[in-house]
């Protein structure tokens, strides 16, 4: 258990960074969940609401930025405190990007006027749910300051990459089989890419959490690599 600082206002500032990051993470979770729901239900008015909601995430990022600058200027944090403060900047930046990707999904749902093919949509939503679980894992690891949980979240990304590749292949086949589906499938490809990118940001955050907890950079390689030969066939 970490001891309190002699200056209690310092603890209060660090706690505010901590709680804002958790709050921001929660909003990003919601943003992705809602986007996926609007995608499955083809609910354009809900999608509009989601697009509007993105500003809350952006505002929190600005708040965390301002707070961390203030802490650095006022307190000159060292050791674990310094790692928390620097990582908070990077984590909030990544969460903000994740929010943008989730919002992009809603933007397509709201603005694309043609029907998106059902079967790949279901696959994509499934992949999105897996990414949501990763977000939950990584936020848990942040709350518990657990490098083991962070590594678990990091490792999950390989499954997302696999799913993305399968969806990519499937969409190419659908487009090749029926050129009428090209527009719809292209939109779905972009959505799948948005989700895949969110997984990458979860990995970044997992690396930051590992650094906060251990003071060491996370040196890890994905188990599987994309097989480009297979893709080029």
């Amino acid at each position: 258990m970490m001891k309190d600082h002699i200056v209690s206002a310092y603890d209060a500032q660090l706690e505010l960074v901590n709680s804002n990051l958790i709050k921001m993470g929660g909003l990003v979770e919601d943003q992705l969940r809602n986007s996926l729901q609007s995608l499955s239900n083809k609910d354009t008015s809900f999608a509009e609401q989601i697009i509007f909601d993105d500003h809350k995430i952006n505002a929190l990022e600005k708040e965390i930025d301002a707070l961390t600058y203030k802490i650095i200027a006022m307190r000159q944090p060292l050791a674990n405190d310094l790692r928390v403060v620097l990582s908070a900047l990077s984590i909030s930046n990544d969460l903000e990007r994740m929010g943008d990707h989730a919002t992009n999904i809603a933007k397509r749902v709201a603005n694309v006027k043609i029907n998106l093919p059902d079967a790949p949509t279901i696959e994509i939503v499934k992949m999105g749910e897996d990414v949501q679980f990763m977000i939950k894992q990584v936020l848990d690891s942040f709350v518990k300051k657990s490098d083991k949980l962070a590594i678990k979240a990091w490792d999950s990304d390989v499954n997302i990459d696999d799913s993305y590749l399968n969806i990519y292949r499937e969409l190419l086949e659908t487009m090749a089989g029926n050129p009428d589906t090209i527009t719809g499938c292209s939109h779905l490809l972009s959505i799948a890419k948005n989700i895949e990118r969110i997984g990458d940001y979860v990995q970044n955050i997992a690396e930051d959490i590992h650094f906060i907890v251990t003071g060491q950079a996370l040196e890890r390689k994905s188990e599987k690599r994309i097989n480009w030969e297979e893709i080029n066939q």
């Binding site: 001891k3 600082h5 050791a79």
Partner: peptide, 19 residues
């Protein structure tokens, strides 16, 4: 010492947690 000290007492001192 100032980024990742090995001893908890060192860390508590340099981060202002002593008392």
């Amino acid at each position: 010492i100032f980024s990742n000290p090995g001893n908890q007492k060192t860390q508590d001192y340099i981060t202002g947690r002593f008392g």
